[in-house]
Simulated scan of single mutants.
Amino acid sequence: MRALLLAVAAALALGAPPARAQESGVQCGKSGEGFSQWLSSFREVAVLDGVSHEVVDAALSGISYDPSVKAHDGGVAAFGHNFASFVASHVTPGGIARGKALMRTYAGPLAKIEQRFGVPGPVLVAIWGLETSFGGDNGSFPTFRSLATLAWDCRRPERFRAELIDAMMMVQRGVVQQRPEQLRGAWAGEIGQTQLMPSAVLMFATTPDGDGPADLIHNSADALASTAKFLQAHGWQPGAGWDEGEPNFAAILQWNSAPIYARTVALFADRLAGR
């Protein structure tokens, strides 16, 4: 799980968050028991937060508890503790070759993105490769079912209830073009080619030149630009190094708080940069 792709932390860092309607007697569970009743009451919370009845119905109708989502929720421990093993399986010669080829293909957009946000192409393409194999696997979990499951779970209910409402806001504002039942992504609700949480999509979705609506699911350049905007907002220093111990490693940790993952991003970026 990325610690900083979560609504409360990001909103506090960048400005006052929107007012959230409060649930009376916040309920949660460790299984599917009680889920349907809670979800029914949560509809009114979403409406009070500004989501239309039509979007609430489209997003939450027919949603069921997904135990496979709960099974995935292991936090940063999911990456293990063996850096060499993790790198060997995620930074391969084939992946490096493909990443370099994509850097050439997207040289124009990457140049615009670096000019706007100060984040160089190797870092963005490394994240792209690690998150979704360069857009080849954006995830197959139904986004609203995943978020609702985690919003009901007692581990972090408030955090994911905010993300669930933000996901409905993405639909309401037209930030994503898919109908709610069509939206797919990672098990924790991340969507797009670099896997942003709904709160982050609302704040950081952009295009390389900043014009027009962004499509993080189908448009690779938009996904890369949005990733750069996220990193800039979380302390990226143009021209500074990104390896562990260098200034920009902290920004990579804001993308994903697991040190092994952040070190892997940095190493992959080094290889793509020819280091």
Rank of each mutant, 00 (worst) to 15 (best):
L216Y: 01
S199C: 09
F141H: 12
Q195S: 12
W128Y: 08
T207R: 00
P208E: 08
L183I: 09
M170Q: 15
A214K: 03
L147C: 14
D222I: 09
C154K: 09
P157Y: 12
F134R: 10
Q115P: 06
N138S: 11
R173K: 14
Q237Y: 00
R155M: 08
M197F: 10
A148F: 07
D211L: 15
A225N: 01
E114P: 01
A148I: 00
D137G: 10
W187A: 09
M170V: 15
V125Y: 03
P157G: 05
D153I: 01
W187F: 15
D137T: 12
N138Y: 02
A126E: 02
T206G: 04
P213R: 12
A126K: 01
P109R: 10
L110T: 05
M168R: 04
R155V: 11
S146T: 11
A167C: 15
D153Q: 09
I217R: 11
K112E: 02
F160W: 14
V176D: 11
S220H: 06
A162T: 13
I127A: 00
W128F: 11
Q232I: 03
Q195L: 12
E158S: 13
V171I: 08
L231K: 02
A214I: 07
R104M: 04
C154R: 10
R161T: 04
P122K: 01
K229D: 05
T149V: 14
R155L: 07
K229M: 07
F160G: 09
A228T: 00
L150I: 13
A205M: 05
P142E: 08
T227F: 02
A223S: 05
R161L: 08
T149C: 13
C154P: 11
P208T: 05
G121C: 03
A205L: 05
V123H: 07
Q177V: 13
G192T: 05
V176Y: 08
T105Q: 14
T143V: 15
G185L: 06
A186S: 13
I217F: 06
V171N: 04
L224S: 10
T206V: 07
T227C: 06
E158C: 07
Q237C: 00
V176I: 15
L147E: 08
W128C: 02
W236G: 00
A107Q: 04
V123G: 04
G108N: 06
G136N: 09
R159T: 07
N138R: 06
A223C: 09
F144M: 09
A111G: 13
T143P: 12
P109S: 11
I191H: 14
T149M: 13
V176K: 02
W236D: 00
G108I: 03
T206H: 12
T143S: 14
A162R: 15
R161V: 07
Q178F: 08
A228E: 02
W236H: 01
I127N: 01
A186I: 03
N219C: 06
A200L: 13
D215L: 00
W236F: 04
T206I: 10
R145G: 15
E114R: 02
G192C: 03
M170R: 15
C154V: 08
T206N: 12
A214F: 06
A148E: 03
Q182P: 08
D166M: 10
G235S: 02
D153A: 09
T194F: 10
E114N: 04
S140D: 14
M203Q: 14
E114W: 00
G121N: 13
A167T: 12
T206P: 12
G135W: 08
L183D: 10
G185Q: 07
L110I: 07
L147D: 14
S226D: 04
E190T: 03
L183K: 09
V125L: 07
